[in-house]
């Protein structure tokens, strides 16, 4: 008993002050939301497009305007590394989620995507959101960094958000992985078991687009091909701060003053 109290004293209070205070420190080499400065781009270079493993980097309709689909991006920085002109730079901005799939595409001087939730849903879920997590082909990285939000430092419970064991107890699903064919039925059954109205949140490149497994015949290129999605959280895996920010923004729980 004395040992337990001693350890408790030694370990101390660790819950971060975010979002009331500053966000936790991100690593120096953290790859957050990419930025594109098209004016630096060398016409007809296209090396960034060639090296991208998932086809996340491409040109827009004009044929020379580079854009990065963060829903497919693995944040491997291969495009940044080959761009001698410095047109592509991965910033340290962790705020990357969007409500609309098309908003995940980053263009020249693009603004940060919006996260929205209907008035009725916010009234219902704003103070208490219960989520059932379904890993459908996830590699356990997105799962692990979602799970970490339950540890004392992040303490997701203080926002009224909780992961529950049964879809019957849940207000929505948080899905990871590219959704293998072998998991399609189980995912659909879990979705059907959640009472209406319900939310679907997809976390990570796999769940958004199939990630590195995109267009494999064994998978369904993510959950959005099968279910209506309310929130997209990019990353491979997203940093826990990216996931937390996305959830808090969805529920409008971030004070105006808390910037990066």
């Amino acid at each position: 008993m004395f040992d337990v109290l001693l350890a408790r004293w030694k370990q101390g209070h660790r819950t971060m002050r975010y979002p009331a205070g500053p966000p936790p420190e991100l690593p120096e080499r953290f790859a957050g939301r990419p930025t594109i400065e098209a004016s630096r781009c060398t016409p007809e270079c296209g090396r960034c497009v060639e090296v991208c493993p998932t086809g996340a980097v491409g040109f827009g309709s004009a044929g020379h305007d580079v854009r990065i689909d963060t829903g497919r991006c693995l944040f491997c920085r291969a495009c940044e590394a080959v761009c001698d002109a410095g047109a592509i730079v991965f910033s340290r901005d962790y705020r990357m989620a969007a409500s609309r799939r098309e908003d995940l595409v980053v263009r020249d001087a693009a603004e940060r995507a919006a996260v929205e939730l209907g008035e009725e849903s916010r009234r219902l879920f704003g103070r208490s959101l219960r989520l059932r997590q379904v890993s459908a082909g996830g590699c356990n990285a997105c799962e692990a960094d979602t799970n970490v939000l339950g540890t004392p430092a992040w303490d997701l419970g203080r926002f009224g958000i909780q992961f529950v064991a049964s879809p019957r107890h849940a207000d929505g699903l948080l899905i990871t992985g590219p959704v293998p064919e072998n998991m399609r039925h189980a995912l659909q059954a879990t979705y059907d078991a959640v009472g209406r109205p319900k939310l679907v949140i997809v976390v990570g490149a796999c769940a958004i687009s199939g990630g590195p497994y995109a267009d494999h015949p064994e998978v369904h290129n993510g959950a959005a091909t099968l279910l209506p999605v309310d929130l997209f959280v990019p990353g491979c895996p997203p940093h826990p701060l990216t996931i937390l920010h996305a959830l808090l923004e969805l529920l409008r729980k971030i004070p105006e003053s808390t910037g990066p």
């Binding site: 059932r132 997590q133 379904v134 890993s135 459908a136 996830g138 356990n140 799962e143 979602t146 799970n147 992961f163 064991a165 049964s166 879809p167 998991m183 189980a186 879990t190």
Partner: peptide, 10 residues
């Protein structure tokens, strides 16, 4: 299973 109670794989 395949869907388990926690945040784990199926």
């Amino acid at each position: 299973g395949p869907v388990h109670a926690g945040i784990i794989e199926p």
